[in-house]
């Protein structure tokens, strides 16, 4: 008789964290649809949003299967309340001005490039499949947003002042990306997940040269730690969800 083998599978909690990061940043970027500063950037932010929401759909669908409570990707996206979301706080903050929009995409997609590269080697074949697809998209997002960080940081006095303000506002929230808890440690030990703290040196190696080229200082580390990944969110997530979930909740099960 054959030995029973278990297929390595990333747990639902870890998948929710990955999926919610993509979903919430995608939702924030989609707010710029029709409101971009120029047509090309309107198209860019919404194309990035489309990639992210596509990734979120794959990740949340898988989370729903693994969870085994009969929730599909729509149920997870539209029928959870703020405290049940597991995205980092960084992605739920309001868009702010264009400097802040592009800096956030740059900081986050630089992280996602590393996350997807690492997860491409996951023992979980489903996660690896999503990762090899997503890493190509994340690289393009990082490239596009990184050029804006340079252009605005090393631009006019006005653009530089805005990029400096964006950096001050967003940088403290990046620390959360590299915090691990027992869920992350278990996934990493099983070979399905990643030790997030291990990505921080490489992330800095990728981000800091862009800030240098943009003539922007690397902000000092602070003890502040946001905790969105553990369900402790800012006041902003509830407002975002109200907009995102309203239609689905008003017309449950509606399709087109």
């Amino acid at each position: 008789m054959d030995a029973v083998t278990t297929t390595p599978a990333l747990d639902a909690a870890s998948l929710l964290r990955l999926g919610d990061n993509a979903l919430i940043l995608g939702q924030r970027l989609s707010e710029l649809c029709g409101h971009g500063p120029v047509l090309e950037e309107d198209i860019a932010t919404t194309n990035i949003a489309l990639d992210l929401i596509g990734q979120a759909r794959l990740l949340l669908a898988l989370a729903g299967q693994r969870e085994g409570r009969g929730r599909d990707e729509d149920a997870l996206a539209f029928l959870r309340d703020a405290a049940d979301f597991r995205n980092v706080t960084l992605v739920e903050l309001p868009n702010g001005d264009f400097a802040q929009v592009m800096l956030r995409v740059f900081l986050m997609s630089s992280f996602q490039v590393l996350a997807w590269e690492a997860l491409s080697g996951s023992n979980d074949a489903d996660v690896a499949g999503i990762a090899v697809r997503s890493v190509k998209e994340a690289r393009y997002h990082a490239e596009h947003s990184g050029e804006w960080v340079i252009r605005l940081g090393d631009g006019t006095d006005a653009s530089r002042a805005r990029m400096l303000a964006a950096l001050d506002a967003l940088w403290p929230y990046t620390a959360e990306l590299f915090v691990d808890d027992a869920v992350d440690a278990a996934a990493a030990a099983a070979g399905t997940g990643v030790v997030w703290a291990s990505l921080q040196p490489t992330w800095r190696q990728r981000v800091e040269p862009v800030l240098a080229e943009a003539t922007l200082p690397v902000p000092a580390a602070t003890p502040f730690r946001s905790r969105g990944r553990f369900g402790v969110h800012s006041e902003h997530l509830g407002h975002l969800l109200a907009g995102m979930q309203q239609l689905h909740r008003a017309h449950p099960g509606a399709t087109w």
Partner: peptide, 13 residues
């Protein structure tokens, strides 16, 4: 290049 993102995800302008 006019626009890094185009009318569809797979194209640039």
């Amino acid at each position: 290049q006019l626009s890094r993102f185009g009318a569809t995800a797979c194209k640039a302008l």
